[in-house]
């Protein structure tokens, strides 16, 4: 078990969100999409230029920029 940033996760890797370290509009957008501590996520893929990243969460697919993923800490196996 170790905690890494969402940006560092590999394609296909799964993990549980530990913390979302950002407030304001970005923080709220991230949270309202279901990215809150305790949520299971899987990296679905990355765009052709490696950014943004697409993740599977709660039965849906979300995409966010790497710069936004940097605020999300994930606990991985």
């Amino acid at each position: 078990m170790q905690t890494i940033l969402l940006r560092q996760m590999q394609k296909g890797q799964s993990g549980t969100i530990q913390a979302v370290k950002v407030g304001g509009e970005l923080g709220r957008r991230i949270r309202e999409m279901g990215l809150i501590p305790g949520t299971q996520i899987t990296i679905h893929g990355r765009a052709p230029l490696n950014d943004p990243v697409a993740i599977r969460v709660m039965n849906g697919t979300l995409t966010l920029r790497n710069s936004e993923a940097d605020y999300i800490q994930v606990e991985v196996e």
Binding site: E25, L26, I30, G60, L62, T63, L64
Partner: peptide, 10 residues
């Protein structure tokens, strides 16, 4: 930038 966080709908 406005947050990009966006859904990729099925």
């Amino acid at each position: 930038p406005t947050p990009f966080v966006m859904e990729l709908p099925p």
